[in-house]
Design a protein around this nucleic acid. Sequence first.
DNA 1: ATGAAAGCGCTAACAC
DNA 2: GTGTTAGCGCTTTCAT
Lengths: 330, 330
Amino acid sequence: MTTIADVAQAAGVSISTVSYVMSGKRAISQETRERVEQAMADLSYSPQASARSLASRSTSILGLQAPIRAGVDVHVVMQVVAGALKEARAHHHDILLLTSDDAAGVERAARAGMVDGVLILDVETSDPRVGSLADLSIPSVLIGLPDAADQLICVDFDFEAAGRLAAERLAERGHRTVALLGAPPQVQARHTSYSDRLTRGFLARSREVGLAATVYPCPAGPGATEVVDTLLAGAPATTALFVHNEAALPFIAARLMSTASASPIEIVALSPAELALHVPGVSDVIDLPAEELGAAGARTLLAAIRGERPLGPELLAPRFAHAPAEPATV
Amino acid sequence: MTTIADVAQAAGVSISTVSYVMSGKRAISQETRERVEQAMADLSYSPQASARSLASRSTSILGLQAPIRAGVDVHVVMQVVAGALKEARAHHHDILLLTSDDAAGVERAARAGMVDGVLILDVETSDPRVGSLADLSIPSVLIGLPDAADQLICVDFDFEAAGRLAAERLAERGHRTVALLGAPPQVQARHTSYSDRLTRGFLARSREVGLAATVYPCPAGPGATEVVDTLLAGAPATTALFVHNEAALPFIAARLMSTASASPIEIVALSPAELALHVPGVSDVIDLPAEELGAAGARTLLAAIRGERPLGPELLAPRFAHAPAEPATV
DNA sequence: ATGAAAGCGCTAACAC
DNA sequence: GTGTTAGCGCTTTCAT
């Protein structure tokens, strides 16, 4: 195992010089720097993380608590994690996986000094995990928007704006009676923040633009088919659907296409773009930028670790995944 | 921040005594142990991971390289990760997420002494990542079975046996012409080890039991419907399907049910049990024990870190997810 | 059964 | 611009 002392000796300098070459925290002459870098390469030296961390009191590791829970879309979670990981690595940080749904795990990692900060995914409206977060010695960032968000750093997709955007688009298209097919029942029952906000935005804007709107929870998979049938039976005037449920979307679309009807029912989906763009029957997709969300969370956490505090929650604005049907010149 | 010195002082003992109380590496009198434990609790002491790791030259962290790649079933990956994480935590270890598909990342973490071992998921038949693994200073365990598996520790589901088991079951049921609907085209093209092994076992045993069997790659989602149509058109004698593709399964099942036929086509699925058990039209499910696989991988890695070497690859035997349709008394 | 002390490999004052 | 050195908080010999 090569140590910093080996490198120093090989380069004919002191160990602090080697250290400063690595950190860039003080000026080094061009010549010395080159000798040191050559020595590091020759010896294929890697600094020891634990020693560095003990001396510097920081780890270059972010804790990540991701949920593995019923109804949570694993695809979205994976993408958020991928985005966070990518961003973290881009800033020379690693990610330690913390057991899901376990406030104690976060505390343990924080107190053992294993991580410089924690990123917490899929936070619920009243999440039991947020309580202990405030008196942690390290910063934390939530992806999600809990009730007690005031004193916490939060990053999320702007679900409320997405709901409004969908209502506007449906109204523009001339619809009068629409429905929101949302998250699975167990997610709605938990009052997951995003589901509530989406609904609120959709209903509010629908009212403003004169849209009659109803909301249905929707199970993933083939079960979605029944919901569609129930909906069409109960509200036959419905001419368009706003679907926020990637796992149900193909089934809903398939069901609508097989249901012969005078005017086909239109679908606007909120989903990761690549999952919904090619589902036949979906006319518009509001992208759920999962990877970007993870990256934003990591970026904000890194900023917090540096001591920067954001002013309020950071909400990613909704966007349609492809250009609207109107001419691009508008 | 409380240190071991604070605890020692509070308990009126030396630092080493506190250390030995924690590690249990030498005998401590009942009385002393209690005083020390009391002091640790009073001060709510957590040992500092980096200091411990620097002194002991081990981290209690497992590196985990999980793929986030086209065609890989995210649900299965998540379950494997969950199983590994659970097992690791049960043995007081943590998990560091390593960037996917990046041999350099594994090396970096190993050489920086960030992890005591690495667990590598979804290894392909000829995986570029396995080359550098052998001359790492720390042990590694593959979940998957690459070609050059001889010198590497591998854990996997026994896909070949699962293929045979499916063929046997279909033959028992009286079928004569069957088909395997497998992984998405891009996975098969990569010659992912498991896909090959499943096919091999299925075809070999089919031949032995007099089954005419064909293999079709199968895209996830609605695209699967077309494959079913193609198959039924090309081989109308087909009376049963063996499906290994969770994401396509509901679509395949739905398609078969809508295709009115004299005798319905039977489906045996290989899938995580909870995903397939309740899909209508699926008669038998061979469970893909994803979580167990992750746990087995972690367990084997922990054993390897302790210095134990297994003799050959560890293959989890396939099992039907629920009791066969025959009377339980048989 | 317990204590003293020498490191582990690095960072960051404090020199010059 | 570079070197010296005192820690960082633990584990683990070596003593007793």
